[in-house]
Amino acid sequence: ELKKVVALYDYMPMNANDLQLRKGDEYFILEESNLPWWRARDKNGQEGYIPSNYVTEAE
């Protein structure tokens, strides 16, 4: 089971490997080892790295 998180803030990608975050949207965490960058997937199936301090665990 993948960990689900909710974006606390918008995040615009800095490079091609990053994933855009939209405040309030849910994302699945694929990999937590790259702290403070986590690999995530959005609801459309896009994958990339996000800043872990921009998300919180979903209820």
Results as ranks from 00 to 15, higher is better:
V55M: 03
L2F: 14
E32P: 13
L19H: 01
F28I: 11
D18V: 09
A58V: 13
R22N: 12
N34D: 15
L21F: 00
Y49P: 02
Q20T: 10
Q46F: 11
E26A: 08
P51C: 06
Q20A: 13
N53D: 10
V6Y: 09
N44Q: 12
N44A: 10
K23W: 02
V55W: 01
Y54R: 08
Y27M: 02
Y9W: 09
P13S: 07
G45W: 04
W38P: 10
P36M: 11
S52F: 06
R39Y: 04
E47D: 12
W37C: 14
Y49T: 11
A7W: 00
W37R: 15
N17A: 10
I50N: 00
Y11V: 03
E47I: 05
S33N: 08
P13H: 02
Q46I: 15
L2D: 14
N17C: 12
K4S: 07
L8S: 06
E47Y: 03
A40Y: 01
T56S: 11
I50C: 06
S52A: 12
L35Q: 12
W38Y: 15
Y49C: 11
Q20I: 07
E47M: 05
I50L: 10
P13A: 07
L19D: 00
G24H: 04
L35K: 10
E59T: 12
I50A: 02
N53Y: 04
N15A: 08
N53L: 07
W38Q: 11
E31V: 06
L35Y: 06
L8I: 10
Q20E: 13
E59M: 05
A16D: 15
L21K: 00
D10F: 01
V5W: 05
E31W: 06
P36A: 14
L2M: 09
L19W: 01
A16W: 06
K4H: 03
T56R: 14
R41S: 06
N34W: 10
I29F: 01
R22P: 01
R39Q: 10
N17H: 14
L30G: 02
V6K: 11
Y9D: 13
R22F: 10
P36Q: 13
N17Y: 07
N44F: 11
V55S: 01
P13G: 08
N34Q: 15
L21N: 01
Y11N: 02
A7M: 01
E1D: 06
L21C: 03
G24M: 04
D10Y: 02
M12K: 15
S52E: 08
L30E: 06
T56H: 14
Q20R: 12
K23G: 05
N34A: 14
W37H: 14
Q20G: 13
S52T: 09
Y49S: 10
V5P: 01
A58T: 09
F28Y: 08
E31H: 09
M14R: 15
V5T: 03
M14N: 15
E57R: 08
Y54L: 06
I50R: 00
I29L: 12
D10G: 05
V6S: 04
E59L: 07
G48K: 01
P13M: 02
D42W: 01
K43S: 12
N44P: 02
D42I: 00
